[in-house]
């Protein structure tokens, strides 16, 4: 449904070129919930905004984003506008994403009014239905964002994304700033939504409960793509293992060191300096290895495969 091919998003800044997304490829299958996992600053949100072409002007985007056989990056601004909200909708991060001076009902109705040219009243009656589905009282539609709690705001954002019945939903950190109880509610809501979803999160447990497949991003690169079940039972990439081991339920072992800067990131494997298994080959750019329906960008697996071949 959506295929990202060799996507690069670089930002020109005074300090140098920030490689926020580098050589990223993945594909989204119809109806699945695909989760992008990574630390803050690993380029996840930039990737999401690149798909909707909402990046600021200093962003340099290269590669291909194929949505329904069309390369999004080659569409005109007019065509792009027809796509946004209607075919690909965005559920933004919770804080400050709602306009403080417009009622939440109207903000949710906006995509409908814009794309289907329906009256305000008809748009609102549709919004009421979505509100009911998400457990928001319809009388709250007249209220303004400051009258909502964080969890309710998040639901409103989901409603806003759903209102024009898009084919693909991109949720950016839907659990940011929410407590465990509220996260549970968001999981329930997301499970009820029967759509192709690209979920961006750093919350591993959230990803575990929700996703069909998982992609791990590290320093602008996708280092592993695996079915969620396999990922959480036997991660491939050393970074994935490190991430899972840092969970409290798995021993709370943090990964040594810090994520390198995106301006002059290390050559070869970007995780090399923090990796316990790093070998001489890691100084060269690691290849993407396919193992059944899993992908991993790591020399360890290349070596293993070579060894297997030789035997």
């Amino acid at each position: 449904m959506l295929r990202v091919e060799n996507l690069k998003v670089h930002f020109k800044t005074e300090l140098g070129i920030v490689k926020a997304v580098d050589r990223v490829s993945f594909d989204l299958r119809e109806g699945e919930k695909f989760t992008l996992i990574g630390e803050s600053g690993s380029g996840k949100s930039v990737l999401a905004q690149a798909i909707l072409r909402l990046l600021p002007e200093n962003a340099i985007v290269a590669g291909k984003i194929i949505f329904k056989n069309r390369n999004i990056l080659e569409l005109s601004e007019r065509e792009m506008r027809k796509l946004r909200g209607k075919e690909i909708a965005w559920i933004p991060q919770s804080q400050n994403s709602l306009n403080p001076v417009l009622s939440v009902g109207f903000q949710c109705a906006e995509p409908l009014i814009e794309h289907f040219k329906v009256s305000k009243r008809r748009a609102f009656s549709r919004v009421f239905k979505i509100f009911k589905f998400l457990g928001i009282e319809s009388k709250k539609a007249k209220n303004y964002p400051h009258q909502f709690s964080g969890g309710m705001k998040q639901r409103v954002l989901v409603a806003m994304g759903l209102s024009a019945e898009p084919e693909l939903l991109i949720a950016d950190e839907p659990t940011k700033g929410l407590d465990a109880n509220k996260i549970g509610q968001i999981i329930k809501i997301f499970k009820k939504i029967n759509k192709t979803m690209l979920i961006i999160t750093h919350d591993l447990r959230f990803a575990d409960k929700l996703s069909d497949r998982v992609a791990v991003m590290y320093c602008g690169e996708v280092v592993e793509i695996s079915p969620a079940k396999d990922f959480f039972s036997s991660p491939l990439h050393p970074y994935s293992k490190g991430l899972l081991d840092s969970l409290p339920s798995r021993g709370l072992k943090p990964i040594k060191g810090f994520q390198p800067s995106m301006i002059d990131s290390p050559k070869g494997c970007k995780f090399r300096e923090r990796c316990e298994h790093s070998i001489e080959a890691c100084k060269k750019t690691p290849p993407v290895i396919t193992l059944n329906d899993r992908l991993v960008r790591c020399w360890l697996y290349a070596k293993r495969r070579e060894i297997e071949k030789n035997v």
Binding site: R81, N99, E114, M160
Partner: peptide, 20 residues
């Protein structure tokens, strides 16, 4: 942030600037 969100809905620039 809400301006990016408004653009993500597919609103015209004019609407984003004036209404939002």
């Amino acid at each position: 942030e809400y301006v990016v969100v408004a653009r993500a809905k597919g609103l015209k620039d004019r609407v984003v600037v004036l209404r939002h």
